[in-house]
């Protein structure tokens, strides 16, 4: 792929993302406000249940929960939303020279924008209130970037597979629902029994969330660096897997659309 091609793909993705946002929020601010309110309401409900009813003993639990819940919601909602992208755009993909990844990237960027706004509205003020050092805020783009790449690859894999298997949407939605309980989002990994820790170690979602937690809640630079390196290797593996799957299934994918 040449630099010129990359520039073209970027311009197309940018145009499509803006069109998606315009199409979704045209004439209504309620839709946009809802995308911000939705994670906040989820956070409020879970914070109440786990903090005040189950009384989970974690220092500064609200920030702990928020630093895991926001990336999780972004991952979850993007995969669910992006999974049907190729299936729904079959005629378009067969009619015009549009690279399928441009469509997927546009969906991920659109959700990423919502996630970023929700993050700025909720976490940033608490960071200032809790006097979290500026260095941690400056390192946040690394966590965002690794999550973004991971989400694009997972969404792409789901979107390609969804073209071939009609019931995958329901199965994946079910898997994502139960993954919430198997991913240390509202509880700390330290309370997971040793013999069950392997479940977490095979959970790619967890690796993408850890950098946010290390940065915002634990505020441990060494653990953050380790988490970023781990997620970097996972992202590389997922990129390789996505391109392998795309290359292998490309022609069949077009025929099935």
């Amino acid at each position: 792929m040449t630099l010129e091609e990359l520039k073209i793909y970027w311009l197309q993705t940018e145009g499509l993302t803006l069109a998606n946002l315009k199409s979704r929020y045209r004439g209504t601010w309620t839709g946009f406000i809802w995308t911000i309110l939705n994670p906040l309401i989820m956070f409020g409900a879970q914070s109440f249940a786990f903090n005040y009813i189950l009384k989970i003993q974690i220092h500064n639990y609200s920030l702990f929960l928020l630093s895991g819940l926001l990336p999780w919601l972004f991952l979850n909602q993007t995969i669910e939303m992006g999974m049907g992208t190729l299936q729904a755009s079959g005629r378009l993909l067969k009619s015009f020279p549009i690279h399928p990844f441009v469509l997927i990237c546009a969906v991920v960027i659109e959700n990423f924008f919502n996630f970023f706004v929700a993050f700025v509205v909720t976490i940033l003020p608490s960071m200032f209130l809790l006097e979290i050092p500026i260095l941690y805020i400056l390192l946040a783009p690394l966590a965002f970037f690794s999550l973004f790449i991971g989400t694009i690859t997972l969404t792409s894999l789901a979107a390609i597979a969804n073209v071939f298997y009609r019931d995958l949407r329901f199965i994946l939605r079910f898997i994502l629902s139960i993954s919430f309980f198997f991913t240390p989002i509202f509880y700390d990994i330290s309370i997971v029994p040793v013999k069950l820790k392997w479940i977490v170690s095979f959970n790619v979602f967890y690796y993408m969330i850890v950098p946010f937690r290390q940065l915002l809640h634990e505020q441990n630079l060494w653990s953050f660096a380790t988490a970023i390196v781990e997620v970097f290797f996972i992202d590389i593996g997922l990129i390789g897997l996505t391109f392998y799957y795309w290359k292998r299934k490309r022609n069949e994918l077009y025929s099935r659309l």
Binding site: L16, A19, K22, S23, R26, R91, L92, S95, F96, P97
Partner: peptide, 17 residues
Amino acid sequence: AVFDTSMGIQPELTGRE
């Protein structure tokens, strides 16, 4: 290459968009 002549990318948007 052109394979279809009645296709929009975002049906919710206007023809011009």
